[in-house]
Every structure is written in structure tokens, then in C-alpha cells.
Design a protein around this nucleic acid. Sequence first.
DNA 1: CCAAAGACGTTATGTTATAACATCTAATGC
DNA 2: GCATTAGATGTTATAACATAACGTCTTTGG
Lengths: 157, 157
Amino acid sequence: MKHAHTHDLEHDLLAAAQWCAKRGEKLTDQRREVLALLLSAQGSMKAYDLLAEIQKQRPTAAPPTVYRALDFLVTAGLAHKLESKNAFVACCDFEHPHHGLMLICDRCHKVTELSDERLAARLAEDAAGHGFSVAAQDIEVRGLCRNCRDGDTKGAA
Amino acid sequence: MKHAHTHDLEHDLLAAAQWCAKRGEKLTDQRREVLALLLSAQGSMKAYDLLAEIQKQRPTAAPPTVYRALDFLVTAGLAHKLESKNAFVACCDFEHPHHGLMLICDRCHKVTELSDERLAARLAEDAAGHGFSVAAQDIEVRGLCRNCRDGDTKGAA
DNA sequence: CCAAAGACGTTATGTTATAACATCTAATGC
DNA sequence: GCATTAGATGTTATAACATAACGTCTTTGG
């Protein structure tokens, strides 16, 4: 089980590195490490939690270490910031531009990222009707995921 | 001009007080003062900017003073928190429950609040398709308002 | 009046994020 | 190769955002 998981992780990291290369950027060790933590996390992670993990390997790491990596990952489309939680999550499909719709479970904290271009289009249309040009949209929805709604008792932190 | 503006503000504050009373709550002086600041603001305001304004009258006011008022106003539906800016804005129509779609201008910082129930329904439908029950949604869109997009040079801060 | 609940005062602290500047590293041109 | 330079990182300090905790006051209902 751990093996399969590791394999997926390595695969994702490789794809991310290639994605960066395509953009003329580099997935450095620090960026890779932060991305690996996000990919391995069950849900989103806070910057200072990431920092604590990084510090296990690199005791001298400081806040800028992780914030720089996060800025890079978010700008590159490899991760998203969840504004309503001040937390970060790996992007589910960074190779395809999409408008993320984040379903954030308030109980188990897992995040499901959907993409609905028609929803995004409707939103842009509403905005345009008011003379507003959309540059970025961030739809975050709080609620309960299927497991937690159905009374699952294992998901809670 | 100032007269009309003051009149509107008083009207809004009165309506807000009545709204609170209907809910069995009170719009106290501090809450009213914070709401008045939000209503008078051109765009959103930060908690510590509100605090600075409050301190002009009440030099001993501290962060909890303003955060308590803001928590109350947001819970009562009289204000919204803009998660992507860590800022607060008065609700445009607190008497009618609605799903706000916030158009936030990145240049002049004005906020236009729309309500599109069909958009909200579509969003809830997407979520339900993944077994997710929506509890709260916060749609924040960043971009440029009509004036700023059209090259207005007066709106910038 | 008395008790309970809610609002507020006050101090301290926790949490999130960035400024500023030094140093290191890697790609580029010569 | 070697200098240049842009990008990345190290490091210290601090700014910006938010809440915990506890005491007091005020209102309200019994």
C-alpha cells in the first residue's frame, strides 16, 4: 500500500517538474518538498504545519522558506490557496487550466476540487453584466463530504 | 451631498437595528459604529483600519472591540468577510437571504455584491453530484470594475 | 432585589505573512 | 574558463490578522 502511494507521489512530482520546465521554471528541492507534503496530505495544510514538517529535515527553515515555495506553487498552478482557511492544497489537475470549485469538508477537512466551466461562464457573465472584468475567481464551498454527512466516524481529525 | 449621504446612513442603521431586534439581538453602540464605518466606506475595510477609526472616539478600544462587533455583524448577516482580502464589507441587502457573489475591484477596491440564485443552485448541484452537502458558500471574484477597466484614473487609492 | 446572560474592558498571546538584505547557485554571453 | 547576472535561498526581524482568558458592568427576567 505504501508502495503504490509512493509511486503515485513520484509520478505526480515528475509530472509537476515537467510542467515547470515547460514554463521555463524549476521545481527545486524545496518546492518539490512542499508539493510532496501537499500531495501526501489528506486535506489541506497550513503554512506553519508545512514549515514544521520541513524543519524535521532542515531545522533552519524559516517562514519565508515555505511561503516562497507556496507562492511559486500557487503561481505555477500546482497548488491552490484556500482563502477561507488560510491553508493550501495541491491542485488536482494542474495540466489543464480550469476554474476550481473547492468543496471543503468542515469535519474531515478533505478537499475535493471540481471544475465546472459552465458555472464559471455564468459567473463571468453575471460579472460582465455589471461591467466587471473577471481576473481570478476562487469558489470555496464549506459543508460536509459524503462520508461525514453519512455519519462516518473515522474521518474526523 | 453630505446631507443625503448622512440620511441614507441613518436609514440603513435604523433598518439594521430593526433587523437585529427581529432576531432578538441588539445593535449596540459599538456594533452600530462599526457598521456605520462599513456602510460609509467606499469599499471594504480592514479590521485594524476600523479599529483606528474607532480609537479616534474611544482611545482605549482594542482588537477584540472591533472583532466582536465584526463577528456579530457577519453572523447577523449585516456584513460579509472577504476572505481573499481579510477585509469586511457591509451587506447590500441584509433583509433578504441571498448568496452573495462579490465582485472585488483590484484597483479601486470597491465591492459590488450580486445575488444569483441560479448560480448558487448550479453550484449546489455540482456539489451534490459528489455527495457533498453545502453549508456555506462564499464566491469572491477579483478583477476590474467598469470604471477602472475603462481607464479611469480617479479611482485608485 | 438577585441571578443569569450578554456585552464590554483589558492584557496578553497566538497565528499568518512579508520586508529587507545578505549569500549562494546556475545559466548566459564572451 | 570566467565574469555577469538573474533567480533562488538563508536569515533576522517585524508587520498584519485574530483570539484566549478573565474580570467587570449592564440589562433583563424572576
